[in-house]
Design a protein around this nucleic acid. Sequence first.
DNA 1: GTGGTCTAGACCACC
DNA 2: GTGGTCTAGACCACC
Lengths: 133, 133, 133, 133
Amino acid sequence: MWFRVNPRLPTPIYQQVVDGFKEAIVKGFVKQGDRIPSVRELATLMTLNHNTVAKAYQQLEREHVFEIIQGRGTFVAEFKPPSDSDRDRRLAKIVEMMQQIYIEGHYVQLSEDDLMSLFRETIRKWETGGKDV
Amino acid sequence: MWFRVNPRLPTPIYQQVVDGFKEAIVKGFVKQGDRIPSVRELATLMTLNHNTVAKAYQQLEREHVFEIIQGRGTFVAEFKPPSDSDRDRRLAKIVEMMQQIYIEGHYVQLSEDDLMSLFRETIRKWETGGKDV
Amino acid sequence: MWFRVNPRLPTPIYQQVVDGFKEAIVKGFVKQGDRIPSVRELATLMTLNHNTVAKAYQQLEREHVFEIIQGRGTFVAEFKPPSDSDRDRRLAKIVEMMQQIYIEGHYVQLSEDDLMSLFRETIRKWETGGKDV
Amino acid sequence: MWFRVNPRLPTPIYQQVVDGFKEAIVKGFVKQGDRIPSVRELATLMTLNHNTVAKAYQQLEREHVFEIIQGRGTFVAEFKPPSDSDRDRRLAKIVEMMQQIYIEGHYVQLSEDDLMSLFRETIRKWETGGKDV
DNA sequence: GTGGTCTAGACCACC
DNA sequence: GTGGTCTAGACCACC
């Protein structure tokens, strides 16, 4: 698989699957139109319950990341620019995380510029690099 | 109070209290050595369950943000450079959030540079601005 | 063909075929007594699984829209006033959809009158217009 | 309860619960800010599994019909005008149902005007009347 | 084969 | 008390 899941984290497993696929797509491991393992296949591969995987796939479909075709399988959707409300919701989420970063940064004595460099570096490493930074 | 709490948000209330205090400290509303209202005081002031407040205070103490001195009260801890393990934990958290930002950014078509600008702007606004950006 | 089918929609394909034929008949593209392609012909023409097409034809026959004459082929049935039970079933379906419309309308703030106008307009456009409104 | 559920219908149970609540709200049986029975309560009352009820509540929250407050309960959300994309999606659904009605109407020999009258009548009866028309 | 639903029952976080 | 998640296993519709 393109990612791993850790049941001991507080993040729900199905959410980790959702995040894992988004990451795999951004990194280019999976591409538009690609067929995704079936719900049951992935469940077996990752030793998860099929309901958990199905929940993740359904959420990814709601987010327009996957396209589920009944009786045929699940595919990576073609990219569509998000609706305004979708965009707003995502931007708000991003801004909130940026504030959190700034606050956490304060406690490890990272200045704004330090954080900017770390950000650049993180993206670099991560785009080229492996699954886990 | 220096912050507000919204029970309708999915973020747990105790977490909002934790974040609220950290934010107040970074913004300078509360300073090192300042006395913080007791659990029961704050619970009354903000009409929260005192268990919820207690949980927040415990977490803030665990993170060395608060210092609880038995019989005297709760204070904002003096700043100490974090232990290595603390620092590592916080850095890991920051890096993870940065990755999330990059992924979310992908879906609203924000490039690395767009994100950098947004980051700078967010911090600017937030530092000068009020509690809610 | 007189209609198209989209496997990406949540509506089952066989149902889309059923709806497509009904629509074609109401619009007059196909008339009473017209011969309809055989299951296998249509399956080839539209690149569908023949089981899917067969299921649609069976349902259309059950609803007295098609008439399958053994050894001769499938035809658009001549119009017969429906039996009482048929009529009741269809009316119940119609009433239920009308309620659904009213409820959905509520959430987009459409009044009864708005819905009536929309209904009139929809029929107008649809009767004159093409396959997809 | 304000509605009943029929496990033998093809419509999934959780969807029937969703529709049932929307109907109850439009009819005014339940009002903005009202507390809804807890997931487990409703499950017991209607002899359903709590997972099924939870799924319905979650969908209603996604549609901004319910508001779920962690640890406190579930409430009828205040009405907010939908986003443009939400509105478009709902309108498309309405238009599609109207076309279906027109087609079905054809088979019971109901003219456009007949359908209009039936629509008016349906809403009248249903708004004043009981749970099942 | 594909995904979707449902029940039963356990466990958890939050207030 | 509240809702959320997860597994196990059954059953179903669709292609």
